[in-house]
């Protein structure tokens, strides 16, 4: 029994290999892109919507709302990144109900790559919003002595992101697999349902945490002060 879908390799040429993780990622990507394309091909701008358009609009506005709640900033800039993180992880996890499907998020390589993306995105958004100086000052607050701790914190939370998602998804898949061999009927279904719930929650947690990191990097000093004052008033 394989722990990671990385181990299932269909084709290999040197370091380049086509494993189950990449394959299923492509399938998820294709599915998402196809559904999006099909639905957004004919968008209604009036008050009458198709069900699919309505669903996608609810999704998009829901994500926007969450981003706004977490970051207290305009969500349009972060929507593609955070939204894609959430949708990709959620769909990858939800599809695990399909027999024969292995969630790409159950591979530590995938979760690492997503965590690395967040790791890169944080300074990227920080630079673009505050400028280099503003962002870098963030590492030496409240004093220069905090610099190593801030860097360690940045690294450790990236690792935590990757391992948390991997552990949850992998454990869900593993538990179902193990239970199937012990109690083949009914109980695995319950666990699978639980797995779906956990998968969705993990997608939410991953996206929200990514947003929190990005938001902390993009919030200017002035904005932070304002927020502190608001909390003080309450």
């Amino acid at each position: 029994m394989e722990i990671s879908p990385d181990a299932i390799v269909f084709w290999r040429w040197g370091v380049v290999s086509l494993n189950a993780t990449i394959l299923f990622t492509w399938i998820v990507m294709a599915l998402m892109a196809a559904v999006s394309w099909l639905v957004t091909r004919k968008l209604a701008e009036g008050t009458k919507l198709t069900r699919w358009q309505n669903l996608l609009e609810v999704l998009v506005t829901g994500i926007e709302g969450q981003i706004r709640d977490v970051s207290h900033q305009e969500p349009r800039l972060f929507l593609p990144f955070v939204g894609t993180l959430f949708l990709f992880i959620a769909l990858s996890n939800l599809l695990s109900i399909v027999p024969g499907y292995l969630p790409p998020t159950g591979s530590l390589s995938t979760t690492t790559s997503l965590a690395l993306s967040v790791f890169i995105a944080v300074p990227f958004f920080g630079f673009s919003k505050q400028g280099g100086k503003g962002y870098l000052r963030h590492y030496i607050t409240p004093s220069i002595f905090m610099l190593p701790f801030n860097i360690m914190g940045e690294l450790s939370r990236t690792v935590a992101l990757a391992v948390r998602l991997f552990g949850n998804v992998m454990s869900g898949t593993m538990i179902v697999a193990i239970l199937l061999s012990i109690v083949p009927l009914l109980f695995p279904v319950v666990m699978q349902l639980l797995g779906l719930l956990v998968g969705l929650i993990q997608a939410y947690i991953f996206a929200v945490l990514a947003m929190v990191y990005v938001a902390s990097a993009t919030q200017t000093y002035h904005e932070k002060e304002l927020e502190k004052n608001k909390k003080g008033d309450k």
């Binding site: 722990i3 990671s4 990385d6 370091v15 380049v16 290999s17 494993n19 993780t21 990449i22 990622t25 492509w26 990507m29 894609t84 990709f88 790409p104 591979s107 530590l108 390589s109 995938t110 690492t112 790559s113 997503l114 690395l116 993306s117 991997f166």
Partner: peptide, 16 residues
């Protein structure tokens, strides 16, 4: 558990 090629490929996939 980490296949670095897959990590790279997934980053690219994610960006795409």
């Amino acid at each position: 558990l980490i296949d670095w090629f897959t990590v790279f490929a997934q980053i690219v996939n994610f960006l795409i």
